[in-house]
Design a protein around this nucleic acid. Sequence first.
DNA 1: AATGAATGAGAGTTCATTCAT
DNA 2: TATGAATGAACTCTCATTCAT
Lengths: 214, 214, 214, 214
Amino acid sequence: MAHAPQPNPTARKPRRYLPSAERKREILDAALREFMNDGFAASTVERIAARAGLSKSGIYAHYDSKEQIFEELLDTALLSSQDSFGLLLSGQAGSLTDIVDAYIDQIYSRLESPMAVATFQLLMAEGRRAPRAIERWSAGVLARMNQDTQRLVRDCVARGIMRQSPVTENFFVVISPFVFWLAKSVLLGEDALVSLTQMRELHRQLMLDALLVR
Amino acid sequence: MAHAPQPNPTARKPRRYLPSAERKREILDAALREFMNDGFAASTVERIAARAGLSKSGIYAHYDSKEQIFEELLDTALLSSQDSFGLLLSGQAGSLTDIVDAYIDQIYSRLESPMAVATFQLLMAEGRRAPRAIERWSAGVLARMNQDTQRLVRDCVARGIMRQSPVTENFFVVISPFVFWLAKSVLLGEDALVSLTQMRELHRQLMLDALLVR
Amino acid sequence: MAHAPQPNPTARKPRRYLPSAERKREILDAALREFMNDGFAASTVERIAARAGLSKSGIYAHYDSKEQIFEELLDTALLSSQDSFGLLLSGQAGSLTDIVDAYIDQIYSRLESPMAVATFQLLMAEGRRAPRAIERWSAGVLARMNQDTQRLVRDCVARGIMRQSPVTENFFVVISPFVFWLAKSVLLGEDALVSLTQMRELHRQLMLDALLVR
Amino acid sequence: MAHAPQPNPTARKPRRYLPSAERKREILDAALREFMNDGFAASTVERIAARAGLSKSGIYAHYDSKEQIFEELLDTALLSSQDSFGLLLSGQAGSLTDIVDAYIDQIYSRLESPMAVATFQLLMAEGRRAPRAIERWSAGVLARMNQDTQRLVRDCVARGIMRQSPVTENFFVVISPFVFWLAKSVLLGEDALVSLTQMRELHRQLMLDALLVR
DNA sequence: AATGAATGAGAGTTCATTCAT
DNA sequence: TATGAATGAACTCTCATTCAT
């Protein structure tokens, strides 16, 4: 009489041997989730490992330390946000509405990821821990974005599409409502006070109101 | 030859006996600083104690746990921000400029404390850890402030002092640049991009521009 | 308008100043209960104090240390068991039944206290901790009891009331079923296997069976 | 001149890597000794670890908590006492003396281990701490032993080998002198009052006297 | 006699990391 | 590449005890 292939309770899941690059991606994924939930200090290598499907010590075949994981994570996250922002806008010689819509689309599309708020929170909470990553991001992506946008805006002003105002002189500030919504969501929850949809529309109207040539 | 009052290495510094209320205040002070620097998880009771001038175990004569300290800390911090905000404004039947100036003064005066940015960061980073404190704050202070302000604004609109607009309908959003500056300061430093003084002036102009009756 | 004598929530119960002797009794009482429940090491001075109705440090006005409490406790408990055991028996020149009944009554009457089993357990668990108390008890109470009983028994044998046997030569052993019941109760509970009443009757019959002249 | 192999003070003794099962056994061994000496509460994980030859934290690779060690320890100790007790006896159709001798051998052989008394003490002292282990033991080993023995005894009575009496009806009680000796040894020491050898002989005679058909 | 504030010496436990395999 | 066993340092919290009042 043959034994049925009974599921052995002590059966250990087999090792998965992965090439380092792939494994590292999995680890970063896992780490992102853990760091977001608990912050850096309260996250443990063990839980990251579990989520990534290997053992605690397995992590150390790919990274030297928890800190290193964090750095690489932040680098990846921040630099991936590299998007042809200014380009997108400058391409269109459209109306103010078009430009504002493009801008709004651009920034609010980030929030489609369910982890967007958590990412922002992580950045706020632990950014200090990886000053160089922040520095690179600030000097690279952010600076470029800022320049591009500001150039576009000046252009629009020159062409009479936008009304010159403190806003056009300091265009970075128009992102404020977006940041406000993020901060609010971190503190009070995404559903409190204003929904994302409402915020988006409000933001749009604010911009139009501020930029419209009267 | 007289001995200099050399610090005796075995001399234990004398205990300081304080009434519990006072000691608790000192502990909260110390904790605030520690939590701000390192976050909740990375702060240690021992360092809080050292800063507060007593021994590690001395802390536990006043608080049951590190978590309890955090809760009480947040409660104190958040509820102390209780200021007769609306009242201040509603008192003046002044011009739009007066009102805007009052508003700007009101919110930016908070930033005079050197710990303001760090407090914001702490709130962002660890707010989730004390949901009830946040809840109380949100349902109490914030809700009241919001109502008062909104009522004032409607009044101003009715009296023709402010132009009706999406801004006046959703007045909470005018705080956005302030929050933006905080978030930016956490990430990039207080001196990056815009200084506080610049921001304040910019914010003022933004508000005037948005509210002025044309 | 007079305030009603509202019960102040922060009202601290007033100190009770007691003469030391009385307070010590209360402390020993409290300690007995705590030590029984948790053993010596797991009992805390604070809980003993609470039970005795004073503060932790108040204890130290009466005892120098937790250990000292324990010693005095054991001394009191053991020496109080001093009863004119042999005397009681020797008084009666009665029949075997009378003597056995007296013996059984004597030992089982101890179990009327609801703490009897716990006391036994405490003795088993922590006796080593106060060897001198045990020593005094053994050399005093126990030795005397043993002698008296043995003398009585020899007497009974001589008078033909008891059958000479290994039992009468080692009379101490007749207490075994009693000790057995105690040990069983500690391990399995007082209701397991045999109830106290059953045990008592069984014990009686065992003795009669062993001592009866055939 | 050769250096004597002087013990290098900074030399850390090398790790001993053991398979978990083996290490667990060593830990249980160490724990047994520690718990016996000091009781559960006063034993420390560090000392258990030292005895087991690893570091304090090493313990936690195998057990989740001190309590878990205790539970497993008790389980192991109690369930290992599983012996074919009844079987041993029922096999022999021998005389009363044979049966009594077998019984006495059976139970007194346990005391050959130098830790027997300490184990009993541990059970008395800390049994309550692992009620489920006790429960399992009681419902398993003890119950079976009791049944087997009682069945054997009834058989003997039926065959006229034993005299019917309260003893045969409640045969569990014949273990009393053994328990008495254990309890006495815990309290007064193994050498006090009666030696083990004396007790064993006395116990034997008691049984014979109680069971012999007259 | 009594207390509240304070402390030192640990306790159990966690965790990033190392090592042998 | 991957793991299980091991560790040291650190952590939170407890507790017997002391001290000023």
